[in-house]
Design a protein around this nucleic acid. Structure first.
Lengths: 278, 278
DNA sequence: CAAAGTCCTGAATCATATG
DNA sequence: ACATATGATTCAGGACTTT
């Protein structure tokens, strides 16, 4: 049995053992319906950001160049409504497969995080924190017509208000806060650089494979703080697979879904590389 | 003509000269309807945050005093829906009186800022930045079960997507960024302390008058960066009146509205104190 | 008077056990 | 699902008191 499951070739339900530490190629909403309820310990979601950029010419303060911008099929939504509907379906599906004491992380920018947060509240998630990822090396806004957007926002929530015994490794959290600000207070502000250098996956042309690949250090922090070893970390829109890669590296298990073959292939390669390393 | 206008005693519309540098006592939605469209240069809103705090009291065990949360009438909403409706009416009213190139600032915490931001997008405001106010002296999370909430979020937007020539004093912005982070990049992260000491308005008992008084330094930054001298700064839910106080101090004009007489009285006193100072 | 020590408090969705 | 009783944590900064 390989690392990848093609959902089209799978009839019936998924048992946990079928998909643990697997990448599933398929429509995430449909795949989740076939998963067992209350089966994962933590969820990380990095949804499409709905940048609303013009199709041809991307504005330079948003992205580096026209070619490399977020202008791909997966970020195309006709309207706020369509976007909201997608996020709502995604979060509903995720909530169903979360264990009762599981937590969920969602990352976004000001383009999408407000609508997304609002939907989380409406679905009954209980917010624990909004965390501000303060990038140490943001792209400067060289037109100087507004502030340099140096942050992304992470929302951290539990399934319901009544959940109390979720995982929060406070000593680990304090480690990072000491490193960031030399402070014993564990702030909801994190300082770390964006994804750079060797971490960045490239395609055959040497161009970056994915516009919004997250740094491993970000996932490391999230996973170490909010899961224990052997927990199952779930990413329903996995992209380049940083979630599963870091989870595995830290002795956790993963389940990842993506609908694009090129990303699934890249994840597969990345994880195989990890196996040889370990 | 005094500093305060009682809306009940005012028939007909308000001309700009009637209300410039005045505090209006009345229902903000109704008052705004009587204001002239396209008349203000900048708006600052610090709406109720809809904290949904538990009814029980928290006690500090060592000193045996209550932890006073916000538990006041103005933060009472029955449901998300009721809260959303209030914010929607407020923002619609505000948009109407904004000049075409005016900008708007809205502040909040994770309790309310996501729904509020979503509504702003839906009403057609064009977001310029989300700014993270990183408090230098937050209340620590004493039980250590989540991150210390050390931030509030400011949303900064223009009236419509097509607005280009709004006020952004980039040199002033850089001043603050140098002070905060010794950086020439003007980050969307601001470091300043919460409202403390002599700034804080007290009532006759020596207790704080308002749970959520904003520091003058915050308003100073906002006003200096996003307005020019003699501009009209509008605050439709003025509370303790920090907006007007700082605006006046910086050579701007203000219009403030609040429905509670005790706050209007306090603002009046505060502004009279400023006149004697200047 | 200055320096050191004490007390208080800040927009907070902070826990657990029992009935 | 409530309400109630019990328990024993955190830091910066301003106001106040003592040395």
């Amino acid at each position: 049995m390989g690392l990848v499951i093609n959902d089209k070739e799978w009839a019936g339900k998924y048992k946990l053992k079928d998909i643990q530490n697997k990448i599933i190629l398929g429509d995430t909403i449909e795949v989740m319906k076939k998963m067992k309820p209350k089966s994962v310990d933590m969820v990380f979601i990095d949804p499409p950001y709905f940048l609303q950029l013009p199709k041809k010419r991307l504005i330079r303060w948003e992205v580096k160049t026209d070619v490399e911008g977020v202008n791909e099929q997966w970020d195309k939504f006709a309207s706020f409504k369509e976007y909201d509907n997608f996020i709502k379906k995604l979060l509903k599906g995720v909530k169903r497969v979360m264990k009762p004491n599981a937590t969920i992380w969602v990352i976004g920018t000001y383009h999408n995080i407000f609508r997304t947060g609002k939907i989380m509240y409406d679905l009954g998630f209980w917010m624990l924190n909004d965390v501000s990822w303060f990038k140490t090396n943001p792209m400067p806004n060289w037109l100087n017509v507004r502030f340099t957007n140096a942050t992304e926002t992470l929302l951290w929530a539990v399934k319901d208000k009544k959940v109390k015994k979720y995982v929060y490794n406070k000593e680990v959290a304090r480690e990072y806060s000491m490193k960031d600000f030399n402070s014993k207070i564990v702030f909801n502000v994190w300082r770390l650089p964006i994804c750079m250098g060797g971490q960045r996956l490239k395609n055959a042309d040497g161009k970056k494979l994915h516009s919004t690949q997250k740094p491993e250090a970000l996932l490391e922090r999230i996973i170490r703080i909010s899961t224990n070893p052997d927990d199952v970390v779930f990413d329903p829109v996995a992209g380049t697979g940083t979630t599963g890669y870091v989870a595995k590296k830290l002795g956790r298990n993963f389940i990842m879904i993506d609908k694009e073959e090129k990303y699934v292939k890249a994840m597969q390669k990345r994880l195989k590389g990890l196996q040889t390393k370990l």
